[in-house]
Amino acid sequence: MTGPSARQAVVSATSLSHALDLLADAQRPARPFCGGTDLLVQAASGVVDPRRWVDISRIPELHGIGCDKGMLRIGAAESFARLRENALVKQHAPLLADCASQVGARAIQERATLGGNVGNASPAADSAPALIAHGAQLEVASTDGTRLVPVEEFFLDYRRTALRAGELITVVLLPVREGGIFWHRKVGTRRAQAITKVALAASGWWQRGALACRIGMASVAPIPMRCRATEAWLAVHAGETGWMHAAAGVLRAEITPIDDLRSTADYRREVAGNLLLAFLRRMEAAR
């Protein structure tokens, strides 16, 4: 059973500028290939990608995890195995460390990359809720330069992102903020090697009695979404009588889950509210 990717055109990039040149080539449409854990599954269906694959897995500029001026910088080609074990990530981006340990299983984690997970833009993307909850930004590069995109503005529609032709995600930046409550839960089809049925990640701070929080969710909309309506409602009503159950109701109305192969809209809606309640109970306990 030879994999159909044997016919795929692939070229290795030796540096970031080499990769960007290849991706900018209008005559030869190309797409980045790194960990391969999504692309090779897609290739298995037998249809050869007409675009050339540019292997970016060895580009030094896409690797590295460090703290600089209050920002945690993670190279887009860093694997989830690295993220789950890295001291800086565990300390400053606990939701990201947590979701990293729940991506697939070990062999997937060793190859799947943060940039690839975001760029693949599945509504079930494992890292997206955590990145949204942490207020992450994506540094995106092309032959024209670099720009920053807040992660929740990156996902435009089902598998459509804000990446322009020739652009590549190079770094993921997360602001370092102390003293918050962080909570994440991925509900999959089983306890490992599971695609998300519904996931929620949230970060929250009490500020002079008002709740400031960021809520990211997967698999409840065509895109990984930031639940702004729920956040806004909480900013006003957190602390009132029955606020937690009411917030769950607001969330359930804000999301748009569907029935699919993995689960039902009703189930996703119910669980989404339950996950929010769990986060809010922890916020309440920390007040």
Binding site: L40, R106, I108, E110
Partner: peptide
């Protein structure tokens, strides 16, 4: 399975576990 779910194809690359069905030989 050909899609990295079963691990029957797993090998070690620099002592890290990978599913060889999801890796290109050139890597």
């Amino acid at each position: 399975c050909g899609e990295g779910e079963c691990g029957a194809c797993a090998v070690l690359v620099d002592n890290a576990l990978v599913n060889s069905c999801l890796m290109l030989a050139l890597q």
